[in-house]
Design a protein around this nucleic acid. Structure first.
Lengths: 156, 156
DNA sequence: CATCTGGTTTACGTATACGTAAACCGTGCC
DNA sequence: GGCACGGTTTACGTATACGTAAACCAGATG
């Protein structure tokens, strides 16, 4: 049987392509398996994001080839998800991220405005997290006090 | 027709109860409408949280009466949701929050551990937010630079 | 008494975000 | 040649978190 090489195997042409570019330490292209491993998500999820218009990797013989930029976008998607953003919201974000500095003045001004808005929203989220952390610190403290009390009185 | 009083109307007995306790500034009890308004969510959502075991208000004549503690729990639910936590996860959190300092030493130690874990997780989330904020600041900066350049060259 | 208001339950529908299974294709290795 | 391997599409299923509609009840009001 074919002994799969240690490195992730790929559809042949795709593999050739990926290997051709990028030298060991800093690859320029990635397979779907590379990315699904790196970000601990399934192939299915990655294809789903593409179907929803959040990614659009080039194809080679049908197989998907992801550039560094695609990978960066996926990274953003994964992070945004863990922060509770929907794919729809993340898509808006990526639109901003994608056209970094392109377009006419009007568009650029919109981008400046939107990015400022998003920053404000994230700051608010940070404050909410701080509130939760405070609650948890209180719980932590109270529990430890109770433990100390019980230990002292030996009331188990 | 019945002119609804300015304050939220309630099923009668419930209203009497709610009004009996708490004096204007600091009510002790709340109707489902009070809370749905305060947190900008629907009655349906609140009942749903109850069905999932995250709330358990007392009843009066069938109508739900929420205590300050119930309200605090709902507040936590709403915040957790906006931070991307599922109701299941939030339920675990509320279990911790509910038994603040009760139980035997073993349980208390578990609580200490879990709260510490949750704090660590939230700190990680904060770092992710900081990363996103950094990205956005960059976008913001780049866009403003481009605007300045275009303005200077007057190339629209 | 009829209606209105605010509450209740039950049931079915819907959007999001995938999971899972089936069936296919192209290349490399024995 | 054949099979394993990694990839592909298509289709249907599932979990979460509610929305919506229908039908009911209990007091308050005119």
């Amino acid at each position: 049987m074919a002994v799969a090489s240690k490195t992730t195997a790929r559809t042949d042409a795709a593999r050739a392509f990926v290997d051709a570019h990028g030298h060991a330490e800093a690859p320029d292209f990635f397979s779907i398996s590379d990315l699904s491993e790196e970000f601990a998500i399934t192939h299915r999820a990655i294809r789903f994001y593409e179907a929803k218009g959040l990614l659009s990797p080039r194809r080679l013989n049908g197989a998907r080839i992801y550039s560094r930029r695609d990978r960066a976008r996926l990274h953003i998607i994964v992070r945004a998800k863990s922060l509770g953003y929907s794919l729809e919201e993340t898509k808006d974000y990526l639109d901003l991220y994608g056209r970094q500095g392109e377009g006419r003045i009007k568009q650029l001004e919109v981008s400046v405005h939107k990015s400022a808005e998003m920053i404000a929203e994230l700051e608010a989220k940070k404050r909410q997290i701080d509130e939760k952390i405070e609650e948890l610190r209180l719980i932590n403290r109270v529990c430890r006090q109770k433990i100390a009390q019980k230990r002292a009185k030996n009331t188990d």
